[in-house]
């Protein structure tokens, strides 16, 4: 194929330009170095690192994950080096990688979210913030941020005030009206939204009658949640004008393309990294092939291209 017919994979999120729309999801790719021997990091659209909060944290007792049919329930509990530890131990590595780095941020209070972003904002090499208000594994109030609109707004506003870099609130899937959260994010000045985070879930060992996870409950991810995510992404994306980053059970390019058709501008690969570390790179190739096959010149043409003519909600 001649270079002139090569479709454009570039996407924009606020002031950020990504070489392609495929990222790796927070918590499934470590902080970057873990997969560097296996994956060409410069082929990724962006790297979203594991959730960072103000102080070092330990996370939950094991067992921290359990495999379920076509899925994985995790209750890792957001262990991490804290913001200073991240800057010291991982940022020097990430600065050398020619790929945008989005830091996933969480806090126990509204103020903590703001402080973490302020600390990171003084550093080169951080390109944006994904605001984790929706992890089901933190008990100290954080969950409330994702499911209560007023709390959600306060977090997004606080973070917005702390930085001019892109702010991407990550929506919780377990709300009755996802569009309301998407709109609230946009109104509070977010540059994009991302969804979905893991879905609250639980598994029991029937022989011992004890919960399998050390934390009792966790969050379900992987192929099992993909159709749920497609529906939520569709509802959220059409409620706002800012871009949507979609995730949930992506295994291959088809899953990613499905997300883009219902409205996603970009996607992130999560659990599949554990299975096939090169999934994201393969998804990029698969999207390119699809665009060529369908005679599309830009990946942007895919976004929101869902055809609803003649259907009840086709408006």
């Amino acid at each position: 194929m001649s270079p002139s017919t090569e479709p454009s994979l570039e996407v924009r999120l606020g002031s950020l330009v990504f070489r392609n729309p495929v990222m790796v999801a927070s918590g499934t790719f470590g902080y970057g170095p873990e997969y560097a021997e296996l994956v060409d990091l410069s082929a990724l659209g962006a790297i979203v690192v594991k959730g960072i909060c103000r102080e070092p944290t330990r996370g939950n007792p094991p067992p921290r994950t359990v495999e379920t049919p076509s899925g994985l329930i995790n209750a890792i509990g957001l262990p991490g080096p804290g913001v200073a530890g991240f800057i010291r131990d991982y940022l020097p590595f990430l600065r050398r990688v020619p790929t945008p780095v989005i830091v996933n941020v969480w806090g126990r209070t509204v103020e903590e979210y703001g402080e973490v972003v302020e600390s990171l904002d003084r550093e080169e090499g951080v390109h944006g913030y994904e605001i984790n208000v929706s992890c089901p594994n933190i008990k100290e109030g954080s969950r409330a941020f994702g499911v209560h609109l007023d709390m959600f707004r306060r977090v997004v506003e606080r973070v917005r005030a702390a930085t001019r870099r892109p702010v991407i609130p990550k929506l919780a899937p377990n709300v009755s009206d996802i569009a309301a959260f998407a709109r609230a994010a946009e109104e509070c000045g977010a540059d994009a939204i991302s969804l979905i985070n893991s879905i609250p879930a639980m598994a029991v060992d029937i022989e011992t009658r004890r919960p399998i996870l050390g934390n009792v409950t966790g969050g379900l991810t992987g192929p099992a949640i993909h159709p749920i995510a497609v529906k939520l992404v569709w509802e959220a994306a059409r409620a706002v004008r800012i871009p949507t980053i979609a995730m949930g059970g992506i295994r291959d390019a088809a899953d990613a393309i499905e997300f883009m058709i219902v409205g996603a501008t970009a996607v992130a690969v999560g659990t599949a990294n554990f299975v096939e570390p090169r999934t994201a790179v393969r998804v990029v190739e698969g999207i390119r092939d699809y665009l060529v096959r369908h005679g599309m010149t830009s990946v942007a043409d895919l976004t929101g291209s869902l055809r609803l003519e003649g259907l009840p909600c086709g408006g």
Partner: peptide, 15 residues
């Protein structure tokens, strides 16, 4: 011996 997820240090399952 600990149950594992990623096997490479990324998921923090095997602690």
């Amino acid at each position: 011996d600990r149950a594992m997820g990623c096997g490479v240090g990324a998921c923090l399952t095997c602690v």
